[in-house]
Write a protein that binds this DNA or RNA. Sequence first.
DNA 1: TTGACAACTTACTAACTAGTAAGTAAAATT
DNA 2: AATTTTACTTACTAGTTAGTAAGTTGTCAA
Lengths: 190, 190
Amino acid sequence: MVKIENSTRTILNLAESLLQDKGFNGFSYAHIASELGVKNAAIHYHYPTKEALGCAVVKRYRDRFQLWINNSRVKNLSPKDKLDWFFSIYTDMRADKGKVCLVGSMEAEFNSIPETLRGEVKALHKELLAWLQTLLAEGRDAGAFKFNGEPANKAVLIHSSLQGGLQMARALGTKRFQDVVEQIKLDLLV
Amino acid sequence: MVKIENSTRTILNLAESLLQDKGFNGFSYAHIASELGVKNAAIHYHYPTKEALGCAVVKRYRDRFQLWINNSRVKNLSPKDKLDWFFSIYTDMRADKGKVCLVGSMEAEFNSIPETLRGEVKALHKELLAWLQTLLAEGRDAGAFKFNGEPANKAVLIHSSLQGGLQMARALGTKRFQDVVEQIKLDLLV
DNA sequence: TTGACAACTTACTAACTAGTAAGTAAAATT
DNA sequence: AATTTTACTTACTAGTTAGTAAGTTGTCAA
């Protein structure tokens, strides 16, 4: 029964964590409520439906990513360091108790989640790929990266391998995810 | 109310399809029963628990894969054709209505599925990687593939990208999955 | 001091969940 | 022909799910 400063943020934090941990169909309002020491209805007061809650989580993630990539600390990095920064997002999910990419979690259940949530996931995935594609194109032009073919195709390959790699890490251990990251670098860096 | 020849096989087919479509937490005994025109309890007769049903689906998948790779039609293929055969497994899942890799589906929900099922998924994933790793090593020795580093690491990269790529295809379309496959080839073939 | 509003709780519903126990009818075995 | 087994059905339980309606309490502004 702790008094919570900003309830909606706390709810979103927990919902995001549960989404990455158990998937959209694997968590309930009761999980969030009991963890916060409140009743189910309190969660419904802030987010009337599970669909709305899921959308809010993904929307916040999208906003956060836009803030990050527009921050000068990231913007001024070299292509190689930008790539390492991007990898660190995924590595940190693993370090902190086996979490998985939000996009991957919800695309795996894509055909059993609400329509509007699918839209949010789609938008987030496009934004991640757009940034990665630009990085790859600029990095190759700058002589930091080497690869054949279109930056767009190299981008979907790298993102898919990170997404799948996080899932693999759950079954086969974090070391295997690090192997994926190392191999991506081995294939990309000059 | 059609008389079904081999009920357990039909149940496994449907369960596999639902697993790949909606995830373990996204389907129920009622879905299977109504689709087959029988009652819930009929499914429980064949597979007493959902855990047992899930394990049976993965076990069958594992057996099928072993049969495939030990079949001389696959065994006698060139490294490049073996790779294309492996890709075709994943491509066919997409062609047939947006399915996703069994491994990916269940690893995304890994922390909300039963313990024994996690074991089956782990075993299947290891078997897929072992075969792919051997293919990569042999292909490089034969001069058909080129890549830096360990075959084991290239194997986890490729499998992760296929797994993530199938999920991406749900949100962003099949064309993007084909792009992943093309990029893998571009990075691998001599 | 009053009144509005935010942030809840209590108490509920209808639907769905996996799972069970007991009964039945037809087919296979003896 | 009698018995057993297979493959169910009917009928149920206990628990969980998202979601709602109405009441309560504390804070803050007029």
